[in-house]
Computed example of a mutant assay.
Amino acid sequence: MLEQVTLSSNDITLEPLTLAHATDLIKACQNGELWKINVTSVPEPDKVIDYINVADSMLDRQAFAVIDEHTGKAIGSTSFHDILPTTKRLEIGYTWYAKSYWRTHVNTTCKLMLLTYIFETLEYQTVGWRTDIDNHRSQQAIERLGAKKDGVIRGNRVRRDGVISDTVMYSVVSSEWVDIKPKLVAKVQSIY
């Protein structure tokens, strides 16, 4: 749906996710045993190739590998998904990074690149995020970006363990971007 792009800033590159990233992503998800976190979409190490193939087959998803330019290795993944060109809305999700990159400049850098591209190049109107109601770490990260909580969708997702759970929805609209962008830029500069 969207043109394939590569974005780069602050020693992080986002490039289209391919099977060439599989070996790196197997190591990345093992860094912290991320697949054991019940409220995330991180694949098990032996399911990384399936994860990439599914991402590639989805018509309304554009998946990226997150590359640490210092090592040249993929350290995680993020995606545009639920892309609605008519209403100029999409979501950012399927985001995860090797645990050693948590609470670094990586997430803020990635979101700054993605949001800049969405609002300033694509000229989309709305960016959304969704997360499990019990994924407080993700909710805090989304809120730190400046997104507003839209509400809770009850009983609409099944966790890895089979439990039906609620989803918390967030969004940023284009008119808010002018205030959010300088804060994200300052935040990246303070932690980079």
Rank of each mutant, 00 (worst) to 15 (best):
V5P: 01
S79V: 07
T126A: 05
L114E: 14
D11F: 15
N10H: 15
P43K: 03
I191G: 00
T121N: 14
F119C: 10
V163E: 12
N53I: 03
D56P: 00
Q125M: 12
D134G: 15
V39P: 00
I142A: 02
L7F: 08
R144W: 02
D150R: 04
E33G: 09
L84C: 05
V106Q: 03
V42M: 08
Y124S: 09
G72H: 07
K181I: 09
V54C: 02
W177D: 00
Q62V: 13
S79W: 02
D60R: 02
N156A: 10
L114K: 04
I92A: 06
K73C: 14
L2A: 06
V66E: 04
Y192T: 05
N135C: 06
K111A: 11
I37Q: 14
V39N: 12
L7N: 01
A141N: 08
W177R: 01
D166A: 04
I37N: 07
H105I: 06
I191P: 00
D132V: 02
L115N: 04
K148Q: 11
I49D: 13
H105D: 07
V168H: 05
R157F: 10
V163R: 13
L19F: 00
E143H: 08
D82R: 13
T23L: 11
Q139L: 01
V127W: 00
L19D: 14
S8Q: 15
A65M: 06
V106M: 13
R144K: 15
T126V: 13
E44S: 13
K149G: 03
E3T: 06
C110G: 01
E33A: 08
S79E: 06
D166L: 00
N38R: 09
L2Q: 00
Q62N: 12
S77M: 11
P85Q: 04
T131V: 08
T109W: 03
I26G: 05
G93V: 07
I118S: 04
A141E: 06
A28L: 04
D68L: 10
T104F: 11
S79Y: 02
V173R: 06
G162D: 01
G128P: 01
S57E: 13
E120F: 14
A63I: 09
S190H: 08
I49M: 08
R103H: 14
L14H: 01
H21Q: 12
C110D: 05
T18L: 01
L145D: 05
H81Q: 09
V163M: 08
T131S: 14
K183N: 07
R160F: 01
T40L: 07
Q4K: 14
A20K: 04
R89E: 13
R89I: 14
Q140A: 15
R61D: 07
T109L: 02
Y97F: 15
R137K: 15
S175Y: 09
L25D: 06
D134T: 12
I92M: 05
Y192S: 06
Q62H: 10
F80L: 13
K47A: 10
V168R: 05
C110E: 11
R159H: 07
D60Y: 09
W96H: 00
G155T: 02
M1N: 10
G146K: 10
D46N: 15
S57V: 05
L184F: 02
K148S: 09
V152E: 06
